[in-house]
């Protein structure tokens, strides 16, 4: 082997090691994220038992003594997320069916571009618009002292979940084999019967994954929700009250904490909770997506 080839082979050996390292980097990063959340967050549990952290009803991080119960925050997140799901799931699945099965090709392209456009709008811009236009409407319609409520958050977040739901559900619907449709039509079913009973039925796992990923996005959403929900860390009794979510708490309070202190650790502990929730949701959604492909 001549020297030119030898040098080339050494170079390639190094490049291929680098490729392997980059390849497993995603695993390393996931592990690092979890490790750093644990490193900064676990110290909280020397002072506060895990059950108190999750089930205690008061989040008063700066009173003396501080109380770190995230139940109101969990309920805030659940309320906003559930509200967003109730709005975005039927609308999202409905428009996915329309775009995939009914819209003529040109309209379809325009509608898909519209959905992509929605996905591209930064969350802080959506939050800004929600705060300025939606909140006053909610306030006057329901005669409330403030329009920054769980409902405003749910509506705003519904829009942020929709691009995810529509595009993934549309993929799942389009992936249903053509023969299913042809067989149904050949047996005399109308287009609607085919779409609803056959195509939507066959695409169920993919649509379920779409819904899960949409919900995953909503739970993790931070800026928009912080700007429109009013940020009151109280256990909500109605969807027309201000609430504070897990994400908004971290984003709003981290700037004021003492590094290494209890409050600081508590916010990282919330990060651990968020990480685990989204990990489970995304993992499950991925399983369903793979099921559809098979």
């Amino acid at each position: 082997m001549d020297t030119h080839t030898k040098i080339r082979k050494i170079k390639e050996f190094i490049i291929e090691r680098l490729i392997f390292l980059s390849g497993i980097m995603s695993i390393i990063i996931v592990a690092l994220i979890f490790a750093f959340l644990l490193k900064e967050g676990l110290t909280l549990f020397w002072q506060v038992p895990l059950s108190d952290f999750i089930f205690a009803r008061n989040w008063y991080p700066i009173s003396d003594p501080p109380q770190f119960g995230i139940l109101p925050l969990i309920l805030g997140s659940v309320l906003v997320t559930a509200g967003a799901a109730v709005i975005s799931v039927p609308i999202g699945i409905g428009s996915a069916l329309f775009i995939a099965e009914i819209a003529p090709p040109k309209t379809k392209e325009i509608m898909k571009a519209g959905v992509e456009l929605l996905a591209a709008i930064p969350s802080v811009v959506i939050g800004f618009i929600g705060m300025i236009t939606l909140a006053p409407i909610i306030k006057s319609v329901f005669g409330l002292p403030t329009g920054l409520t769980a409902l405003s958050g749910a509506i705003t977040l519904a829009f942020m979940a929709m691009p995810t739901i529509v595009s993934i559900a549309e993929d799942a619907i389009t992936a249903v084999p053509r023969q299913y449709r042809e067989a149904a039509i050949a047996m005399g079913a109308t287009k609607w019967q085919t779409t609803w009973r056959i195509v939507a039925y066959a695409a169920r796992p993919g649509m379920l994954a779409a819904v899960m990923l949409g919900i995953g996005r909503v739970i993790g959403e931070t800026m928009a929700v912080m700007m429109v929900t009013g940020n009151a860390a109280l256990i909500p009794h109605s969807i027309l009250q201000p609430v504070r979510t897990l994400t908004a708490t971290v984003a709003a309070e981290m700037g004021e904490t003492v590094q290494g202190g209890e409050h600081y650790a508590a916010l990282f502990a919330i990060g651990i909770v968020l990480f685990i929730i989204t990990f489970l949701i995304n993992g499950a959604a991925d399983l369903y997506l793979h099921k559809t492909k098979k």
Binding site: L32, I33, F36, L37, E40, S123, L213, G216, R217, I219, G220, E221, T222, T247, V250, A251, M254, L267, F268, G271, L274, F275, T278, F279, I281, N282
Partner: peptide, 11 residues
Amino acid sequence: AGVPSVVYGLF
């Protein structure tokens, strides 16, 4: 892809 953006901030 699913990790909340604020968790990236913490990380």
